[in-house]
Design a protein around this nucleic acid. Structure first.
Length: 638
RNA sequence: GCCCACGUAGCUCAGGAGGUAGAGCACUUGCAUGGUAAGCAAGAGGUCACCGGUUCGAGUCCGGUCGCGGGCUCCA
């Protein structure tokens, strides 16, 4: 018999006969059985329960904390849930049940409508299953056997899944108690570690994610080894809820959305302060980066949208209107407007690159079900820019855009990742053009040493794009900035410049945003800061709080001193106690509270209370002004 | 758009198995002049989202519409 060497997690090497069954690398080695407690990595490949090992291998036990460990843990949990559902609702048809970033889900098809009470029952049944102490068994079937098996069990979705497994791939099954599932694994060896169980929600989900398919019922859940971890997770969810921008937007009086205009946000005075600061910051850095600003109309003749290709590719998302018996469309994108300006005169190669920025208000008819506060709206302002560049300038200009985005995101302390989207099915242009454009983006990313994830077929209809995905407080990522390389619009609109050789040539167009939209960016900022905006962004930067109304005059003097230096300051001169005024200012998350009374009047002082720290003592008014001005100047992220 | 849940005062929410609405906060007024997260009292506030149905009678039951929330699909 051939011997193979297996390196165990503790570093020791043991010899086994070929074909050894792996069960748990930490136990039962002497019997020639290694037991995979949580799935183990063998020569870099995750091996599941009872894998047969035929070559030298190195084991590394995957921990619960690992991404792989969690995946295995939650994937097994989804099987436990499926078994519980099968027991409680025997008619159920199973679709898929994977692990996700935070927990797992399983999609079911049944006449029964799951209710929150059902979730409790399922949870109880799951706990029972864990107590019963099952071991998962892995086995394989031939394609024919598998199809036959699921047909007999009346599991049409599973039949479809088996049929879609590529020829030559092993068709593996895992059996947990009386629940047998088609599954590639790996899984936990047994279920006893799944101690803390919480089913989170019921949702609709299309079979295979296709809206033409049947809507199934999806149950989301999460499990942990320890109750404590579950409690912490639930606490985190609640913390996230507290900083929901829709809640804070109301509490801080920043914006509102009304039934009269679903998806069309209203900005209140305080929201407008933040918005205007973002805009002026944006203008400042863009001017420095060599951009010029333009403004184009909201409503333009339908002809333009036929020419741009939006009619063919984007019509279902557009709003239309009729003026003087002519059809018009509300712009869903800013590019055609910018293009009309480009076309209003002749351009020399010497003019290029042209960097035209536009805070463009666009309207898109998004599906009602996707609207979400400021994050997903039907009317929004893109911090757009279109760059008209010579083919030789493409790479350099792309790099500059990436650098600009880097800088802007760093000001807010955002982490992000980049995704590259390639040619979609519904698109225009030749394969050569798409390849050229896609390679251009890749080259620029490589030049900046940026990692990126590829989304095949996710590009705009006129070109490939890279997206910047910012991470918000809840760990959700939001697509903000985007850079799109476009050879199509210049073609469609016959854009030209006159080159050195006096020939008319085609410029390349770069579409890009950095905030993405002012609305979404503000929503992300609200959650990111939990409403505690840094001083430079805070709608009210300081509030003067007189102890009693006899100090109101002094309070107003202090206010004027700050106001004259451009600080956004208010006075709370209501007849309320200081404790009450402080409470309100804290709830409004105002960065600085300036308490004034007898002592302060005498010395021309203010007693400074910082939002997150508390009382930091007295200082002369002038000193406070200098302090806060410096913080504003430096855009301190606290 | 689709699936599920929800829609009561400006806000957060109560209204047991139909009998025409309540609390706290906020608001107005009065008292209190108070030193770092809610002083006391009174008053004013609602076509119970909208439309229709069942019923002697609907906030409550049924149907529809709109909106909102959690997802799916889509996306800045």
């Amino acid at each position: 018999m051939d011997k193979i060497k297996i390196t165990l997690p503790d570093g020791s090497v043991k010899e086994y006969e070929k074909g050894v069954k792996v069960l748990d690398v930490t136990k039962d080695i002497s019997e020639g059985l290694a037991r995979v407690a949580l799935g183990a990595v063998v020569n870099g490949v995750t091996k599941g329960l009872q894998e047969t090992i035929n070559e030298d291998a190195t084991f590394r036990v995957v921990k619960f904390e690992d991404k792989e460990g969690k995946e295995i843990f939650w994937h097994t949990s989804s099987h436990i849930m499926a078994l519980a559902v099968q027991r409680l609702f025997p008619d159920v048809k199973f679709a898929i049940g994977p692990a996700i970033d935070n927990g797992f889900y399983y999609d079911f098809d049944t006449e029964h409508r799951f209710s929150p009470e059902d979730l409790e029952k399922i949870e109880e049944e799951m706990a029972k299953i864990v107590k019963e102490g099952h071991v998962l068994e892995r086995f394989v079937m031939s394609r024919e056997e598998a199809i036959e098996y699921f047909k007999e069990k009346n599991q049409p979705y599973k039949v479809e899944l088996v049929e879609s497994i590529p020829e030559g791939e092993e068709i593996s099954f895992y059996k947990l108690g009386e629940f047998v599932d088609l599954c590639a694994g790996p899984h936990l060896y047994d279920v006893k570690k799944v101690k803390a169980i919480k089913l989170l929600s019921i949702a609709g989900a299309y079979w295979r994610g296709d809206e033409n398919n049947k809507m199934l019922q999806r149950i989301y859940g999460i499990t942990f080894e320890k109750k404590k971890d579950l409690d912490e997770y639930i606490e985190r969810l609640e913390e996230a809820k507290k900083r929901d921008h829709r809640k804070l937007g109301k509490e801080l009086d920043l914006f509102s959305i009304h039934e009269e205009g679903p998806g069309f946000p209203f900005f209140h005075p305080k929201g407008m302060i933040i918005r205007n600061i973002l805009e002026s910051f944006w203008r400042e850095v863009h001017t420095k980066a060599g951009y010029e600003e333009i403004k184009t109309p909201l409503i333009l003749n339908e002809r333009l949208w036929h020419q741009s290709g939006h009619w063919d590719h984007y019509k279902e998302n557009m709003y239309f209107t009729n003026i003087d018996n002519e059809n018009y469309a509300i712009k869903p994108m800013n590019c055609p407007g910018s293009i009309l300006i480009y076309k209003s005169k002749m351009h020399s190669y010497r003019d290029l690159p042209l960097r035209w920025a536009e805070l463009g208000l666009v309207h898109r008819h998004e599906l009602s079900g996707v609207l979400h506060g400021l994050m997903r709206v039907r009317s929004f302002t893109q911090d757009d820019a279109h760059l008209y560049v010579l083919p030789s300038q493409v790479k350099e200009e792309l790099i500059k855009v990436i650098e600009l985005a880097d800088y802007i995101y760093s000001i807010f302390g955002f982490k992000y990742h980049i995704e590259l989207s390639t040619r979609p099915e519904k698109s225009m242009g030749t394969d050569e053009q798409w390849e050229l454009a896609t390679n251009g983006l890749i080259e620029a990313l490589n030049a900046k040493g940026k990692e990126y994830k590829v989304n095949e077929g996710d590009g705009a209809f006129y070109g490939p794009k890279i997206d910047f995905h910012l991470e918000d407080a809840i760990g959700r990522t939001w697509q903000c900035g985007t850079i799109q390389l476009d050879f199509q619009m210049p073609e469609k609109f016959d854009l030209t410049y006159v080159d050195k050789d006096n020939e008319k040539k085609r410029p390349v167009m770069i579409h890009r945003t950095i905030f993405g939209s002012l609305e979404r960016f503000m929503g992300i900022l609200i959650e990111h800061y939990a409403g505690k905006f840094p001083v430079w962004l805070a709608p009210v930067q300081a509030i003067v709080l007189p102890i009693a109304d006899k100090f109101n005059d002094y309070a107003h003097e202090v206010k004027k001193a700050l106001f004259d230096k451009g600080i956004r300051v208010e006075v709370d001169d209501r007849d309320e106690k200081i404790g009450y005024k402080i409470r309100e200012a804290q709830l409004q998350k105002i960065p600085y509270m300036l308490v004034v009374g007898e002592k302060e009047v005498e010395g021309n002082l203010v007693s400074v209370r910082k939002r997150d720290i508390g009382d930091i003592g007295q200082m002369p008014v002038g000193e406070f002004v200098e302090k806060i001005k410096k913080e504003i100047e430096d855009k301190v992220n606290q």
